[in-house]
Write a protein that binds this DNA or RNA. Structure first.
Length: 511
RNA sequence: GGCGCCGUCGCCAAGUGGUAAGGCAGAGGUCUGCAAAACCUCCAUCUCCGGUUCAAAUCCGGACGGCGCCUCCA
């Protein structure tokens, strides 16, 4: 069972969905006024792994909502500056976000609502009106505010004591006037030049926090929802305010688990425009790096620890993935080559890898029954034992509050052991299929290997051209014209294509 | 001022009481037309000081160093 850390209790707790087998999961998405940077994506990639773990390791169904905040001060300012409508301004940023998410191998959530969708605005209005009925609000100059004094639980998530908050509060610099500086706006009264809606609230636009409450409550059904997540900086005030709003309106617990991803730093410093270190996938690509390497790097440390992004780290990530991808290529070779030297009958040789075989979602850490009594004291020897041990280790790592670093270690242990078996000619084609299936299952959660393979399938020059050159080189090698052969190798290397001669033939890969 | 986190090999990073995973880089070796890939071997006692314990990187206290939140921010 997954042990998941919740900010609410500040400890790990066993996780299971409250109803059915479906995890109702809300994650605060991007504000679409610029291209999302790698810090944003740290959060989203980690939450993608949470999603995949729930699905493929725990076997739950998912109902995940990730919103787009497409109305706030920044988007309005951006639209005004560009002299276009709000939608016209935010649409392209949403497109870019979706494209980047795809490049990073993120699964698509079940719902990706926009704050300005009519039904969402109405949902927000509904929450606000319920808050009014329950005596949590006051109106001022056309705006509606949440009165913190009316909600004694306020500050529980962020562990802020109300006394300290009063004293530490700075002077209200907001243009809107409030009774208490800590009170926050639910609905901002209409102002000239700003978009405006009236959903029973009077004309205006939603405050930031109400957007998420409205969309979560509308799209995920009766509270409590199972998981609410976002970046660490959202703990206060955003999520604290969401709790106040949602619970004040529904009089029910809003979310059972609060999951927060720590921040990413760049070369030891906080990302900031003034430092010029706010990187997007564009900068990653400009440096010649693949998105898969970023995804790997993001998963190489625990999501609740600060992660320091460096270009050295990217180099190391590239190499680490290469090890796995090369291993898989080597695995393909087994069964194609010298089957007579393998201990198993050659009838297995042409066997199709069971990748199309349907398997239950909880396959990842599944251990065949006959090996379950395996004593940890015995080092695993047979391939089946090695694989089931790896599956166990991998699963329990993820179940320990998504310990992806430990999970990766399990993958590399498997790679090393199986490589040794291949060297010793002790890997049968069916063994290879078993191992391949395990790696494939692991990657359903990690999402790194398949991503890299997809990237590498896009060579700098057409694949059939590469194949033609490989054959040309092969011919040269056969007539022992090694100068010509090496010339081809060099020619391809200059184009960014590396050749690797294996028993089963020559393999190419992107540099 | 209040709340909280972190400090493990050259770099990245697991491990939270039982005697230091994994990746990258490096050294030596095997294999190899070349080049890779791969394997084998080697490579840390965990910032420092004190304490608790049969036993501590892991618990407690202190020091030093780094960081976050309390305001928009993933």
């Amino acid at each position: 069972m997954l042990n998941l850390y919740s900010t609410l209790t500040r400890r790990e707790e066993p996780f299971a969905p409250a109803r059915d087998n479906t995890v109702r999961f809300y994650a605060c998405g991007p504000t679409v006024y610029a291209r999302a940077h790698i810090g944003n994506f740290r959060t989203f990639v980690c939450l993608d792994v949470l999603r995949r773990t729930l699905k493929y390791v725990c076997g739950h169904q998912l109902r995940q909502v990730v919103n787009y905040t497409d109305v706030d001060d920044k988007t309005i300012a951006g639209a005004q500056q560009a002299a276009v409508g709000l939608r016209e301004y935010t649409d392209p940023w949403i497109e870019v976000f979706r494209a980047d998410a795809k490049l990073l191998g993120m699964e698509t959530p079940e719902a990706t609502p926009r704050a300005t969708d009519e039904e969402n605005l109405r949902a927000m209005g509904g929450v606000i009106l319920a808050l009014e009925r329950n005596g949590h609000t006051y109106r001022r100059d056309g705006s509606i505010y949440f009165r913190i004094a009316s909600f004694p639980e306020y500050g529980r998530l962020a562990r802020l004591d109300p006394e300290g908050m009063q004293e530490g509060a700075s002077v209200d610099v907001d243009e809107y006037s409030k009774d208490n500086p800590r009170d926050f706006v639910l609905w901002k009264g209409a102002r000239p030049g700003e978009p405006s809606w009236d959903v029973g609230t009077g004309p205006g636009r939603p405050g930031w926090h109400i957007e998420c409450s409205g969309m979560a409550l509308r799209l995920l059904g009766d509270p409590p929802i199972d998981i609410h997540a976002g970046g660490i900086d959202l703990v206060f005030p955003h999520h604290e305010n969401e709790i106040a709003q949602s619970e004040g309106a529904t009089k029910r617990t809003f979310a059972r688990f609060w999951v927060h991803v720590e921040h990413l730093f760049v070369e030891g410093e906080k990302m900031s425009k003034s430092l010029g270190n706010v990187y997007t996938l564009a900068e990653i690509a400009a440096r010649g790096h693949r998105p898969s390497a970023l995804r790997y790097l993001l998963l190489s440390s625990h999501y609740r620890k600060q992660l320091n992004f460096t270009w050295t780290g990217m180099d190391q990530a590239e190499e680490a993935i290469r090890r796995i991808v090369d291993f898989l290529a080597r695995l393909e070779d087994v069964g194609r080559v010298q089957p007579e030297t393998r201990p198993h009958p050659p009838s297995d040789v042409g066997r199709v890898p069971p990748e199309t075989r349907p398997h239950p979602p909880s396959d990842v850490g599944r251990v065949p029954p006959e090996t379950q009594s395996h004593r940890p004291a015995d080092p695993p020897s047979r391939i089946a034992d090695i694989v089931s041990h790896a599956r166990q280790t991998f699963r329990s790592a993820l179940e320990s509050d998504l310990n992806t670093a430990a999970a990766l270690a399990a993958v590399f242990d498997l790679v090393r052991d199986v490589n040794a078996a291949i060297d010793a000619r002790q890997l049968s084609p069916s063994d290879a299929a078993t191992v391949r299936q395990a790696i494939e299952d692991f990657d359903r959660v990690l999402g790194v290997v398949s991503l890299r393979q997809a990237e590498d399938a896009q060579p700098p020059i057409p694949a059939d051209e590469i194949e033609r050159l490989i054959q040309e080189r092969q011919a040269a090698r056969q007539r022992r014209d090694f100068a010509a052969a090496d010339a081809v190798r060099q020619q391809l290397a200059d184009l960014g294509v590396l050749l690797e001669d294996n028993p089963g033939g020559t393999r190419w890969k992107k540099k």
